[in-house]
Each structure stands twice: as structure tokens, then as C-alpha cells.
Write a protein that binds this DNA or RNA. Sequence first.
DNA 1: TCATGCGCACGTC
DNA 2: GACGTGCGCATGA
Length: 418
Amino acid sequence: MSEPMYRDWILDTIDSLRSRKARPDLERICRMVRRRHGSAPEQTSEELEKLIQEQTVLKVNYKGSISYRNAAKVVRRSRKKDDHTTKRTAVEEANHSDLSNGDSALGPLDQDETEHLENELPVSMETDSTMEEEEEQEGADEDGHEGSSPSPGGEDAVQGGSGAAHPYSAPCSPSGSRPGHSPVSDRPSTCKTSKRSSPLSPSSPLALRQNDCVCDSAFCPADHGPSGMQRNNTGTGALKTIVQPSGTCPWVQKSLVKREREDGVRMEESDLTSDQLVPDGVDETMKGSDRQPKTLSFPSDDCAKYKKGMDVASYVMAQDDVKNDVKNREISVKKETLRQNLLLWSVADVATYISAAGFPEQAVAFRTQEIDGKSLLLMQRSDVLTGLSIRLGPALKIYERHVKMLQRTHFLDEEDDL
DNA sequence: TCATGCGCACGTC
DNA sequence: GACGTGCGCATGA
């Protein structure tokens, strides 16, 4: 995750450059950020890469040169076509502002978005010679970044070895090509092939997401950029996504899937009990941490169902849980002693619990919002994710791993008592 | 020298 | 025709 500060700086810079009709390219962005904020170009470049991976910024090839786009604005433009999209724009803008903590780019790029863009923009990454040269130069940076750079590396680690291990990565790089590494002439066909290679129906939201992922720029940057804009061009106003942000971050992809599921497939959540929706990745580790059996015993069918759609939260948590195993153990003991009195938990108790769970920073938010045991029981996912003004990552973990678990445990206990 | 503003051309829808 | 984009030039600090 890039620094929010840098995100603002860079987005402001891009907007500023655009407003004065200057191409928002790396050089200008770095220069302006340095001038305005004194940030080193290298740092700016690095942060920019992160933003690209977060989909907050889109890197595109426009008229033969690299440009950077404010993803949110790109989205809005592409939505102006009909009433349906217009109506959604407001929501997206709201989402965007709500998610201005760095996940902003994810909001706008929902399924419709992706679908639209994907339809509109060839999933290719062909470049002209100009771009190729630029890519060659930036390539070192990007290659390092997307492949083994330490910067997104932290996230990569969370991504579970992202590249190689990612299920979608395989079809992603049939040629293992990268811009500048393969003949330009190869790209169109390669990309088309890649796009078609999706096992899912093109109309399937998941297919779209997976396509994004399949062409994960981290593994196959040349293969597409659904969320970004690409216009198959040969340097005449065509727009091509150079780095597919969504793709560079598998977990972002998962996040997108999650969002989309929340929007369109939310019924799953309503159809299933909260138990059934507990991320198996979490519970898998919970098993090893003295979790109460009842909190783990949900229908295997649903468990399997959930596994298929394992979202970013569970994915991340699965990674983190290994580290937090010991911590979870301690927490579970505390839970055991306190859960019966959950309704009696004070604000301080809740804050202490959250803090002990490894989220001291977020515990403050719980305290600030005066979340006591009763409130905790009433909290919904959105409350945790957005109502506390805490970062999405911790929020997801807190909700999936703790809030939901506590609620489930509490209500199951109540059922038992009946 | 550098940042900024903007006319204009081009491409897309 | 509206809109997005950015080149190229003029202007000001």
C-alpha cells in the first residue's frame, strides 16, 4: 500500500498536469512532486508504481508515450454513456471518496466497469517503438517492481508468493513476455489469445476478474489491462494500458472479486449464515489455535463453496494467521473467558480485545466510536470497513477474524442456551 | 530556466 | 457535437 500522502500528491499532480493540458508522464509527475513536496523522484516513482498496482493510477500508452491516469477519473469518463452508468457515477464517486485511503481505485473498477472497459479496449499491450524504448528504460524499474521489488514486496508476500503461486498466473504469461522484451508484432495476437484463454464465460464477473488476473501485469504485463484503458492504436490517440494495475496485485484482484460479490452477489451473504461465510483460511488456522469447535463447524458444502470464492480478507488472513497463531491462541483464551459476557463488554473491553488481537491502532477507532459489546454484536461488515475510518486491510481482518467470530460465538451460545 | 496556460488538432463516441 | 488528450507555443516568475 502506498503512502496516502504520496497517493494524494501523485493524484493531485496528475490532475494538475492534466488540467494544464500537459502529459502526465513520469518525468513531469516526479518533477512536480519534487517541486511541490520535495520528494525524491525515485521515491515518487516508487510510490507511483505502488499506486499503479493499487489501481489508483493507471499507466497507459497514449499516442506513443507513457501517460498516467487518475483511475477514478478514467472510470467516470467511461461511465458517461447511459443512464445506468450515469446513475452509478455518483455512487462511484462516493465510493471513491470513501475509499480514499488507497483503495479508491478499487471502488470504481467494479464489474460493470471492467466489463465496459474490457469491451471497449482491446486487451492488448502492443506498443510502438517509442513506448518500447520507454518501457525498456522504465522496465528495469517495473520489472523489479512487479517481479521482485521490495516495495510491493510486502504485499507480494501477502499475496502468497503472488506470482508463481497465484492460480491465475499461469495462463497469464504464455510467452513470459514483457513490453520491450517481445516483438511488438507479437503482442496483439498474444493478448487476444490470453484473453480468450479464460476458462470462464466472458460475461461472468468472475471471468472478468480472473481475466484481469490472468493477465496480471506482474506476470504478463503485455497481456492486458481490462481495468485500465487500452485503445489499440499505433500512436494516434490510442490508449493502451501499460501496466495493468489490477493485475499486478493478485490480492487486489481478489478484493475486486470480493467487492463485486458484495455488490452483485451479496445474496450469498444473505443466503448463507455468517458461519458459512467465515473464511476457511481463517478458520483453518483457528483450528490450530484452540478455536471453539462450534465456530468452525459449518457445512462442508458451504465451506467448499466459500473456498472457491475465497476473498481477499480470507486470503490475507490465511497468510497472517500463520504469524498470528500464537497471538490467536492467547486471544482465544481471553475470548473463552469473556464471550459469555460479551453483552457486558465495555468500550474499554472491546478496545482491549481489538488491541490484544494485534490491532492497537484500530482499537483506538473502536474506542473513539464507543463500540461496546452490544455495539460489537450489532456491527455489520460495512460498519467495520467504513464506519470506523480504519484502513481496509486491518478492518477486513478485524471483521472477518474477530467481530464476526464473536458475533457468531455469541449467537450460537444463545441458541445453545435456548 | 522552469512552470503554467491554452489554442488547436486529433481521436473516440 | 461533445469530450478527452496532449503537442506546441506564449507568457510570467
